[in-house]
Design a protein around this nucleic acid. Structure first.
Lengths: 233, 233
DNA sequence: TAACCATGAATTGTCGACAATCTTAAAGAA
DNA sequence: TTCTTTAAGATTGTCGACAATTCATGGTTA
């Protein structure tokens, strides 16, 4: 029995392992977005039976990474601009709530610990200027900590087990680049300050704006791709 | 191939049927909340193999009606006061969002159709005074229509396939009674008016209050039960 | 040529049996 | 007695095979 790094899921069964492995491959793009999934093929690849694989597929479906149709099969989710809007609308509402609850509930030592995390980010950010992946993980960790601090188990599950992998997928494959990195850091700082002052209303507002900015950043990437396609014609 | 009445799910496979049947039994309390689930027993009862049953269990898990532990088994979710708070916090955020989007998007004829639905509710409410189930279904249908009108597919799925059965479970088993029925009607009316005026901000606020009132109503039932228990000691 | 229908191949859904794990209860030691 | 250990029983996890459905290919007909 081991533990997964990102979602802190306990890995006990074979299907757990396949689930975590496939999730990583889908999020990182090793298994291409929008591609069809063949059960016999993947079962052979992961060295498990179809029953075990299907168990994993079920769980991938419930975190929105694949889509199933009866008697037809599975597809990896496609990262479209439309879905980006939909998902981020939901994310904004839920993480906004989480942030407000965190501001209400968070103890002083928890806030200090979070501040310390942010300082770590500042260090590594200066070192790894431009490189996005570590910031990626760190940023998600920041959001993850706030979600946890909401102390609402249902919300925590909905976000960290449900929505977060899809968001990571957008961010890993559509990348966060350029000056956005340091701006995001400042926004994180402002959010922490609001939480420290137990100003739930402000914390919620700032988090929603922060998420909205992140959405615009990815949206710009979509626009860029669309423009390139048009130019190529 | 047939269709389910509540979530409009297409029923094509045997596991679909088991899923819908079990869902109804759990929501209505035929399968007791908090009770342990035996796979061999239920498989025999529904006349399917364990593989088919487990497929259904997976889907019940993703709509929060049962909880699984590896190598241990399933339990039906327990309706606690703590969970009520958590779920309704999430519900408030998501349906608030849905209501705002509906106010932004909804066309005039859609609004008219919704008003008509509300008039129907008024009729049946007068006839079936006190009886809560029909109002229950009607009320959920009202919320369902607004969720649909948000036109956000991800949000629609999250609410109608994910959260709504659990909310129904609370409402069916913890009941909505007394003067709450007619108050709820007035609140629905106010929400529709806000939507008709495309006042998203107000619509969201009113929906959140409406949901909060509904929560208090159920909470009161919990308090009542707790008081009765204390008196019995 | 285009539309429709059959036939076969491939894929998904379902089943019963076996292996691995947990639970329970009895037996033994401190 | 109380705690630990162990063995039996029951439950869940996993497997390979069969049945049902869908998809692709080629042939037939208007």
């Amino acid at each position: 029995m081991t533990q997964d790094a990102f979602s802190k899921t306990l890995i006990t069964t074979a299907s757990d392992q396949v689930f975590v492995d496939m999730r990583r491959e889908i999020v990182e793009g090793s298994i291409e977005q929008g591609s069809k999934i063949s059960e016999p093929e993947l079962a052979k690849r992961y060295g498990v039976s179809r029953a075990t694989l299907r168990e994993a597929l079920n769980r991938l479906e419930s975190c929105y990474l694949i889509e199933r149709k009866a008697n037809v099969g599975c597809r990896v989710v496609a990262l479209t601009a439309e879905r980006l809007i939909e998902v981020y609308q939901v994310r904004s509402a839920l993480e906004g709530l989480a942030c407000r609850l965190a501001a209400d509930n968070m103890a002083a030592d928890e806030v200090q610990s979070l501040k310390q995390l942010l300082n770590q980010h500042l260090q590594t950010q200066r070192v790894k200027e431009g490189e996005s992946y570590y910031q990626e993980a760190g940023d998600l960790d920041f959001h993850y900590r706030i979600i946890k601090a909401s102390k609402n188990e249902h919300l925590i599950h909905l976000l960290s087990n449900g929505l977060y992998q899809l968001i990571r997928m957008y961010r890993v494959q559509m990348g966060m680049v350029g000056p956005r990195v340091s701006k995001a850091f400042d926004e994180h700082l402002a959010i922490i300050n609001a939480i420290e002052n137990h100003d739930g209303e402000l914390a919620e507002l700032l988090m929603k704006r922060h998420i909205s900015a992140s959405q615009s950043n990815i949206q710009a990437k979509f626009d860029l791709i669309a423009a390139q396609k048009k130019a190529a014609q």
